[in-house]
Design a protein around this nucleic acid. Sequence first.
DNA 1: AAGACTTTTTTACACGTGTTAATCATAGTC
DNA 2: GACTATGATTAACACGTGTAAAAAAGTCTT
Lengths: 345, 345
Amino acid sequence: MAKPEIHTMEELSAAIGVSRPTLSRYFQDPTKVSRSSVERIRSGLERVDYIPNFFATRMNRKSTGMIGVIIPYLNDLFFTRLLESLERAAMRAGFTVITQCSHSDPEIEARAAETFLSMNVDGAVVAPLGNHSDLKVYERLNERLPFVLMDSRPAPLSGVDFVGTDHVQSTGIITEYLNRVGTPPIFLAMPRMNFNAYEREMAYITKMEELGHEPVVIGAGVVEEGSYFEGHGLAVLNDYFSRGEFTGSSVLCANDRVAIGALRAAAHHGLQPGAMRQGGLRIAGHDDYPLCPFTVPTLTTVAQDVAAIGQAAMDRLIEKLRAENSQGNQTVQLINGTLKIRESA
Amino acid sequence: MAKPEIHTMEELSAAIGVSRPTLSRYFQDPTKVSRSSVERIRSGLERVDYIPNFFATRMNRKSTGMIGVIIPYLNDLFFTRLLESLERAAMRAGFTVITQCSHSDPEIEARAAETFLSMNVDGAVVAPLGNHSDLKVYERLNERLPFVLMDSRPAPLSGVDFVGTDHVQSTGIITEYLNRVGTPPIFLAMPRMNFNAYEREMAYITKMEELGHEPVVIGAGVVEEGSYFEGHGLAVLNDYFSRGEFTGSSVLCANDRVAIGALRAAAHHGLQPGAMRQGGLRIAGHDDYPLCPFTVPTLTTVAQDVAAIGQAAMDRLIEKLRAENSQGNQTVQLINGTLKIRESA
DNA sequence: AAGACTTTTTTACACGTGTTAATCATAGTC
DNA sequence: GACTATGATTAACACGTGTAAAAAAGTCTT
């Protein structure tokens, strides 16, 4: 690194004897410059240390090549996997992803949206916070940018593109499976912090009624702020188990993290949930959290196709930002879940 | 949102009758402007839709107020917690964190570093990738920016500030505990993808020898690319257990994710690891992964103080970037782990 | 009401690159 | 050797905001 540092294209131009506009074109797209110039620039850059200024380049371009992504929280492997698939899809298409995490705080979420607007990102993908979100934030983004909502969908929001799991289908197939193979399941709800919680609950109820069974939902009222999903599942089931209730039931949990808490509650009470034990306790989840194959017992669940959701969201966004004018009409892509049968149910 | 959109300060100045330099000062720090002007601007902004251009503002400031953070991968709750604590610390100090994830790819890591340089971030914090990293990337960042390395430390790198867990201490106390309460533990190593793997292994060996026991390390040679930690722990122990080996041993795992795989292997072979069963199998981990209280059995481990590490790394970085000139000397902060005794050992 | 401040406005230049129009150099063709 | 493409260079302006200096306006003290 004894290379002399050069801070502007002007200086670089002087140092290697290539005009600044040519350098500008080179850094945007080397193919727009003749072969001989490319060679001259390449060899020059080896003798000298220079990086184009990020802000100066983006300020004038019509397109910044950046896509903003907002995620509600990171301490959940579901969202990190989603983020990864988004980033890979964006990278393949030549875009840079700027991620902001709202840490469950609507104010931070709103601020992140403003930041994206002020950065002139080419588009934005948002996984909503949940009930606490300010819907105006999404409307504002949707008005001013190519915008796609992902994972969960605030009911009253229309005219906004959406990509997520078809919870009617996904919750449906596992409800059906549980009914087919054992006793009708009860539903262990999760704190109502996001819209999917409600959708899955409704999907469960619908499917149960369709099959002629009475739906039973527990743990829905409890909304302990700051309590994690696992803790919620553990607390709710511990409570019932110690009163001797539901110890031989089939329990469909609103998601795998709740189910992991449920497994823990079962172990704590000496119960051994599992498909093999006919008539006994069974526990199932939703999402196919990466740890499902390693829990004790391994967790039966419905897999959300994270890779497909991320890819589809990015594809739709890029489609929108390429075809500026044709606003087209609202697109809603619901992606199927697939049953993952393991030991627990 | 019927507000007219205004795109430049010039237009805003004309629209609300406040001069552009005053507006500029207002957006940087409202207290640098008289109360009456603040009022006039506030009320003006309610009638009109304007956000200062991110790039134009950053381009001219000496300080961009941004801190770059590079994380090796996101599919690990340890790093997401670390990231969260970094972001909170930065937010408190008035900085914005730009996160880049290298997805275990040295090329992406190098590109992220270049991006930070071209963005003129005020400083950078990096959690290294591991063996595959190009050390020149860190050296380059360290030369040109206030820079702090975090979590794991490439041995041959000197002169670089570092904040992380004291693995000699942390691995020491759990090795000692396991020896004190039961049979001398063997060490289930993890794929050598990062430097901590080696540090913990060495710390275990040292402590064992100090206590007069023979260290035994298993699973160190296996380096399956793309295999996750849990799968590694599961595969290695499954192998031994099915040959009847180590079924009654104490097993210290290189981290909690490996330990979760180990628990799974135990369950698969009908073994019930736990502190209560004298003379039987015991399994312990390292990190205090958030799921430890929910595994079956709950996992005994050493907690890394993630909050302290993030805070200390950010504090040190901010200290460096405030005192530009005084390069000072290298600072290495090693933070103690604390024993978390649960059921598994 | 004059003087001493404080704050705002005006004016002008700066930042580093995108971009365009016109001029110039080079290579290839006949 | 003159003609035509092709690409490079030069010169100039643009982007939206930071910032500094000087002039103007407002506020407070006496």
